[in-house]
Amino acid sequence: MTADLSPALLEQWYPALLSSELHDKPVSTMLFGKQIVLFRTSKGVHAFKDLCIHRGVPLSLGRVENDELVCAYHGWRYNGCGDCVKIPSLPVERAIPDKAKASTYSCIERFGLIWICIGSPKDSVPAFFPYLNEELKVVLMGPYELAAAGPRIVENFLDVSHLMFVHEGLLGDSRFPEIRDYRVNEEVGLLRTDEIVVFQPDADGRGTSMNSHYVYEVYGPFTAALIKRNPDNDEMFHLFLMVLPMTEQKSRAFMLKARNYDKEAPDDAFIAFQDTLIEQDRVMVENQKPELLPLDLQMELHLKCDRMSIAYRQSLKDWGVTFGTA
């Protein structure tokens, strides 16, 4: 499977798990159809291929003991670097075979999430992290399990013209559906729209109507952001979407919201608002046909308001992304 993935996918960081989901036992997750085991030691978090090289049993069935991952089948013990350091059935005078290693992946823990990269990371942290500065209140939302292809989820997030219908009364009003023309600007490693004006009856769950100014950004195949600004004051937030593409038609989505207002307010209302939006989007992305995102622009009809979607699809093609696309 890894050999079929483009470098643009292999070099990215993906949110695999909430930090709160990983305690003293190993946990299995999936990325691009590959089973991965995550575990925690006194030195931090670790990610291995979820397979013991001895007899093919998932390492996630084992346990963590003395900072070592212990296979449940024959007790083989692996340190945090993937080296097998003990084989109980091997006489003590015999050396552990050099091949006795687990396949390891890069793994970090930031902002309440555990991130993995199955290739050589392009950056030491996910590309959008510089926007999460100390002046903003950062709220983690999700995870959201969706029976949909990762690119479909990202494109739905970037689709400004669905707000007035799927999220009517919250993010839009069907009496004001018009989207004025905008451009998509391409920079090094980034797609960004011009500001798009959208009337919103309840812009972020606080019951306030306004003309919000939107800017959409794409940082990679499965990471995007919405920057929403209130032109009447200095209020703004970044809403980051990060998708873990588990299989071609099953994904786990996480979101981070970084706001510069109501910093002392409880986060529950903001989280509940986003939960509602995701459930409304679920109906669409889990029922779209074809299930995989078409990269051939002739397969569907596009309007000028779809320019960000068009640019995203073109970037996926340029990046050589075939996972989750048609």
Results as ranks from 00 to 15, higher is better:
217 E>K: 03
21 E>Q: 09
217 E>M: 08
278 I>F: 12
81 C>L: 11
2 T>A: 02
43 K>I: 02
225 A>I: 14
46 H>Q: 09
237 F>I: 05
222 F>A: 06
126 P>I: 06
67 D>A: 08
7 P>D: 15
212 S>T: 05
251 S>A: 12
218 V>S: 10
274 Q>F: 15
260 N>G: 09
61 L>I: 13
68 E>A: 02
56 G>D: 08
83 D>W: 01
124 S>I: 10
196 I>Y: 13
187 E>G: 15
71 C>M: 15
195 E>S: 12
63 R>P: 01
35 Q>L: 03
305 C>M: 13
70 V>W: 06
138 V>M: 00
309 S>K: 04
300 E>Q: 03
65 E>N: 08
293 L>Q: 03
175 R>W: 02
190 L>A: 13
23 H>I: 07
129 F>M: 12
193 T>E: 04
18 L>V: 07
127 A>Q: 14
234 D>W: 09
324 G>D: 00
299 M>N: 10
120 S>T: 11
199 F>D: 11
191 L>M: 07
175 R>L: 10
121 P>M: 07
167 H>M: 08
71 C>E: 13
78 Y>H: 00
179 I>M: 08
237 F>G: 02
41 T>E: 06
205 G>C: 10
296 D>R: 06
53 I>D: 08
19 S>R: 00
129 F>P: 12
265 A>K: 04
276 T>A: 09
116 I>A: 00
14 Y>E: 01
201 P>K: 03
25 K>Q: 07
289 K>C: 01
168 E>V: 09
201 P>A: 03
277 L>K: 08
24 D>C: 04
241 L>W: 01
7 P>I: 14
310 I>D: 02
304 K>Y: 06
296 D>A: 06
229 R>H: 13
218 V>M: 08
148 A>E: 05
13 W>H: 03
62 G>D: 07
15 P>Y: 06
122 K>A: 09
206 R>L: 04
169 G>D: 11
130 P>S: 08
196 I>C: 13
93 E>W: 11
91 P>D: 10
193 T>P: 02
93 E>Y: 12
96 I>T: 10
213 H>N: 15
9 L>V: 02
10 L>I: 11
95 A>K: 15
181 D>G: 13
4 D>H: 09
22 L>G: 04
214 Y>P: 00
69 L>D: 12
285 V>S: 04
324 G>A: 02
162 H>P: 07
144 Y>C: 06
202 D>F: 02
13 W>I: 05
17 L>I: 05
92 V>N: 15
111 F>T: 05
238 H>S: 13
155 E>C: 03
184 V>E: 04
94 R>T: 14
291 E>W: 09
131 Y>C: 12
135 E>I: 03
208 T>K: 14
246 M>V: 09
143 P>Y: 12
296 D>E: 08
318 D>E: 13
95 A>L: 12
274 Q>H: 15
157 F>P: 05
268 D>M: 05
267 D>N: 05
122 K>P: 00
217 E>A: 04
116 I>P: 02
222 F>S: 07
267 D>M: 01
225 A>P: 11
18 L>A: 14
170 L>Y: 14
105 Y>N: 08
244 L>F: 00
280 Q>S: 04
251 S>G: 01
48 F>V: 09
2 T>K: 07
299 M>W: 07
320 G>N: 05
115 W>F: 10
310 I>E: 03
182 Y>M: 00
239 L>A: 10
6 S>T: 13
294 P>W: 00
209 S>T: 15
7 P>W: 15
31 L>C: 01
258 A>P: 11
